[in-house]
Design a protein around this nucleic acid. Structure first.
Lengths: 234, 234
DNA sequence: GTATACTTAATTGGATGCAAAATAAAAGTG
DNA sequence: CACTTTTATTTTGCATCCAATTAAGTATAC
């Protein structure tokens, strides 16, 4: 399945004509395109062109581009925006930020999660582990994100949760690139271990598990970025 | 000095007419108004009115409002935006987020800061400590922020740095409210201690100092919020 | 053939226009 | 008088328009 079609298949084919929903739709579409480097790094984005292709005016496109630069996908390039390039430094920075957030999520989740939330997470993991081996990469990534999103929610901290959403989007491509079968299995094992520690409300243990879970070694990042760049430009 | 005038005095009186700079100016102005609750929580912001008062069209105002909601100052209220209310929960969440970021900043700063950066921070602190007792609250807050910004820069991590900028803005009002003379002295002492630990490249020590430095106890937050609310509504 | 001045086209920042929602105001009804 | 229902007004979402600046050609001199 060609790369572009995967992206396309994730998107609504038409932009809602419902008032107030159009801008949101445009943002979602452009965000997905940004996430998967449908915009090639370095290539300047043309507002009129994008508007035309989405069948809307420049206004919602302009707003979406601004939003995406706030979200960290685009950067201002003189006048106009450019997709930020995929490089090792950016990913390293991002994973360090993620580590900062997730470690604290562990702490507060261990101390504040309700028993119901923990039970739900258990069910979620069980469901996750039982998906068919043929499950698409998209779905696997979604399951992975879902686990961390739930953990963030357990903190009861809206700021931490919001941050996790942002970071998850930013690293989605990396997850997508490196989600093969070995990754899949180890991810699930690590999530299970985290859940166990959470059941024991052992924040320390969760944090060290999380650190191990997240900390990609330099060479792993390099490899993933390399694979990513190949995907983007071929 | 009345509250409003303090805010006004921080702002350029005119919006630059330079092309491309106007939007930025409008954002800065509105951000300052948001930071100091010139917009009362709950009161819906009127784009046309704001545009009128700033002498620009609705377009740059709309973009600024969107940006400010991304920055966490405003929230969408059906259609349109409202300044988020100042409450204990929000501040608690924010300080937890800040703690997460700053602890990791300590770690990476201890391990990556150049000797020059450390020396510069030393000079900065010396300058800070020698300011007149009459120094305005504004300046004191700026000095405090400057310290943490420098620490963030030392990580060499653009994402952590960016996050610190955002958080600093969000908590600026709280800093402003609680920056009295006792706060001033203890802040400087704690910064000095952090610098010492940084000189020794002792990340662990820095982290525990930072934790102590940041962790406002629940009642301190309650007090500051209470004072803040009084300031806002009187 | 290359560099430089000059002209034209492309593209963005911002202003304005317009119609759909939402809100407020007014009128009608039990 | 309270309570709908209807009408008028406000305000936003989005489209369009305009002007200023940058980028792209084009021509001319060296």
């Amino acid at each position: 399945m060609p790369f572009n079609q995967i992206i396309l298949s994730m998107q609504a084919r038409t932009i809602s004509s419902e008032r107030g929903k159009r801008g949101e739709d445009v943002l979602d579409r452009l965000r997905n395109m940004a996430i998967f480097y449908e915009f090639k790094p370095g290539e300047k984005l043309n507002e009129a062109e994008l508007a035309e292709s989405l069948g809307v005016s420049r206004t919602p496109v302009r707003e979406a581009l601004m939003a995406l630069s706030y979200e960290g996908f685009l950067e201002a390039s003189g006048r106009g925006y450019v997709r930020r390039r995929l490089d090792v430094k950016e990913m390293k920075d991002l994973y360090e930020l993620r580590l900062a957030i997730e470690k604290e999520c562990c702490r507060y989740a261990a101390q504040r999660a309700t028993d119901e939330q923990i039970a739900e997470l258990g069910e979620y993991l069980t469901r996750s582990r039982s998906v068919a081996p043929s499950t698409s990469v998209n779905e696997l990534v979604e399951l992975d994100e879902g686990f961390h999103a739930r953990l963030a929610k357990m903190t009861g901290n809206a700021e931490l949760e919001r941050m996790m959403v942002m970071i998850s989007r930013r690293i989605r491509f990396m997850r997508w690139i490196s989600m093969d079968n070995t990754m899949r299995a180890s991810t699930q094992d690590q999530h299970k271990a985290l859940l166990e520690a959470l059941r024991e409300r052992d924040a320390e243990k969760m944090q060290s598990l999380m650190t191990a879970h997240i900390s990609l070694r330099q060479d792993q990042i390099v490899e993933a970025v390399t694979k990513g760049l190949a995907k983007i430009f071929l």
